[in-house]
Design a protein around this nucleic acid. Structure first.
Lengths: 107, 107
DNA sequence: GGATCATGCAACCATTCGGTTGCCTTTTCA
DNA sequence: TGAAAAGGCAACCGAATGGTTGCATGATCC
């Protein structure tokens, strides 16, 4: 699974909004996800295709409608594999800041 | 601070690579950050400008050179404010899965 | 002072992206 | 069976993006 696809999928506010809506209520159809969005159905379809390519959304055809399901795992993976390193960087920065402050106090 | 700028800044692999390089060694100059990159100095400059606009990188002029410093805070904020919700979604999905499995076993 | 090194600025270019319009297919249901 | 509902497909468009080249500016060092 490519992390790059996930990062790029999350880059657009419309797509993050769609994820949030699925998080609020899972299994929504395309028509439902279009409601309240200020763009055409085709635009929403494209956004959902990007999310699906990033494995953030899974779909299921039910008769003439298509249900969409959130898959939060790629987001978790990014949090663990990528963001975690910057948690350590933050702590290192704090340590450095503390050391600098103490040096300044000594002068 | 706009989360959108951060998400968009993280969308490009070249920019994530630059962040990783600054995490490995903070305070590098533009020239140092260009080494090993397969693009021109101007391209790197543009990427750094995007990172700076997202507040992920801070700069300091030192004579004729420019030092770049990583700021991991926006990444932390995204982790806490945005990714956190999907942690809860993941747990909910697991609970749902467990329930479904138990239902299936009962049949 | 003049060469050189590090960076800045601006124009330009191809590609991608987000979005639209128009039309087609499939399912549902009276 | 035929109309309406849900969605798919493809072409097109403007703007943003990622990248380049060429030149200008400001420090540094001999």
């Amino acid at each position: 699974m490519s992390m790059d696809a996930v990062f790029r999928a999350l880059a657009d506010p419309a797509r993050r909004r769609l994820l949030d809506r699925l998080r609020a209520r899972n299994g929504q159809t395309l028509g439902e996800l279009c409601e309240g969005e200020s763009m055409t159905r085709q635009a929403v379809t494209k956004h959902l295709a990007v999310l699906e390519a990033a494995n953030l959304v899974a779909t299921e055809r039910r008769g003439r409608e298509k249900r969409h399901y959130l898959n939060p795992l790629p987001i978790q993976e990014i949090a663990e594999r990528w963001i975690g390193r910057y948690e350590r960087a933050r702590l290192a920065a704090l340590t450095e800041l503390k050391r600098t402050l103490e040096e300044t106090r000594d002068e």
